[in-house]
Simulated scan of single mutants.
Amino acid sequence: MPNLVRDRLTWVIYVQLSLWCYFLYGFGPVAPLLRDELHISRTLASLHGTGFAVGGIVGGAVIPALTRRYGRHRLIWAGLTLISGAAAGMFAAHHLALTLTFATLASFGGSLLVNGIVAALTEHHGTAGPAAISEANAAAAAVGLVAPLVVGFAYGTGLGWRAGLVLVVVPTVLLAVFAGVRAPEPLQHGTADGRRARRLPATYWLAATSLFATGSVEVCLTLWGSDVLRDHAHVSAGVATAAVSTMIAGMVTGRIVGGRLLLRYRPTRMLLAALAVSAAGFALFWSATVPWLAMAGLFGCGLGCGLHYPLGIGLALAHSDGQPDLAAARASFAVGISFAVAPFALGSLADRVGPHTAFLLVPAFLLLSAAVVTRLERLTGRATLNTTQTAAPVRAAEPV
């Protein structure tokens, strides 16, 4: 079993990703509060998800060129600076155009950060890369678990949700001062053989489709899960905002457990199991009319969702034909499109039929992911993946 060595660089990367997740999960349950504050429809409030999508899509388009020009280290810190700037900007934003602008900037910064971190961890840890990615996401989700609680508490005490969100700025500044390490740069500028980027294989796009579907599930639950709690389980606005933390608690648990299992079992089969757990959790969440049962369902959703992204991005990198930075950047398109399509579709549908019925989109996305992952499993079987540097982490995830 590969050994994961957590050196100073690893811990700095974990903290960097955690700061992004604080903003992401802190802002997620704010959409219903913005709807009330700005007196807008669910459809308009869901445009914040579209703003996140635009930032991610633009990031996916420009990251390969920016990485070649400026390197991963600078891009990671640029992304973290944009996230902190967006949090500070939200503190003074009381108009839809401004909140949308800062959401887009934060997402662009997040795409710079995440793509750099995923590629850096893969190269830095080699065969232990998948465990490092899963553990990084577990640490980040643990911090994200606190964010809705802080934002909900700030809202409930009259300080406003912005006071909770802007707290991300302080640890960002402290980390910038005391980090003292640099993220590894790409081993070569371009592809593994130094030529122009090759076309990504069909198996990569299956993994990318799964990332789109599971990203849709996660963004729907984080942006609108609190609205279903208010509408169907009769939970107050402040408590519903904080209650999204139950889903993030499930994600933390799933990633902690999954990080170990990922070194032993095939990632495609683990992802199918995670999708089944998410479906079971959603069934309980959607059908429950008692607050604690609905929150238990959210925990179950998080338990499965916690492994969706780490496994999906790991599969995407493994099937990148030796082009990890390009694959990570193009994966931003998949996640970005999910942020654009899913919340807007759900919000628009919710304005017509109510949030509870509209949430049936979630199991549809789970089924889509299951279909493409099953196809990927059949295509790859138990064969060893290619021996490029990006395939090595996934070989370690096969049965021992």
Rank of each mutant, 00 (worst) to 15 (best):
G89Q: 07
V15N: 01
E218H: 01
L4W: 03
A88M: 11
A142R: 00
A288E: 07
L121A: 10
V143K: 02
G312M: 04
S216R: 02
W77M: 04
I248L: 10
Q323L: 13
G126K: 03
A87W: 01
L311T: 14
L17I: 10
P343W: 00
L174P: 05
A397C: 14
L98Q: 05
G259K: 02
T253G: 08
V15I: 14
A294T: 09
V58I: 13
V373R: 00
C301G: 03
A397T: 15
S210C: 11
R269A: 12
T172P: 03
V58A: 14
A202E: 09
L206N: 02
Q16H: 03
R72E: 14
A142Y: 01
C305N: 09
Y70S: 13
L284A: 14
T390I: 07
A87R: 01
V114F: 10
A327T: 06
R230K: 13
F333T: 12
A371V: 12
P399M: 05
M270I: 11
W77Y: 06
R375V: 15
L376P: 01
T222C: 09
G49I: 11
A119Y: 02
V181E: 15
T357E: 14
F52I: 12
F153A: 09
V373Y: 01
H319I: 06
A207Q: 04
A106F: 04
A243Y: 00
L360S: 11
L229G: 09
A294K: 07
S210V: 11
R74M: 12
A276G: 12
P399W: 06
T10K: 01
A316R: 00
T384L: 07
T357I: 12
G258V: 05
L385F: 04
N137H: 08
H48E: 15
A249Y: 00
